[in-house]
Amino acid sequence: MASLSRDDVAHVARLARLQLTDEQIDTFTPQLAAILEHAADVEALELDDVPPTAHPFPLTNVLRPDEPRDAGIRDEVLAQAPAAEDGMFRVPPVLGEAP
């Protein structure tokens, strides 16, 4: 059983774009560790020959015809955006390219 450290929690918070204070990390670490400890029963199972279930029912090939439709929601959405300019969503400067 991998035990969860403060650093793990800080790393995960960063990945999830959450800014935690030291106190919050102190609170979350044992809580998350307890939940993961509870999951140790699952982690311990020997399931090499069991296929995973990603979806309860075996539907396949659910497809849509390639026919365009105008949703007509642009102005409504832009009007309640946190910031908009020239028909676009405005954001503060973006540092760095997409990962």
Partner: peptide
């Protein structure tokens, strides 16, 4: 340029 921009605009 991305690094010197005052802000950015997104078109989806």
């Amino acid at each position: 340029r991305i690094h010197d921009a005052a802000h950015s605009l997104v078109d989806y």
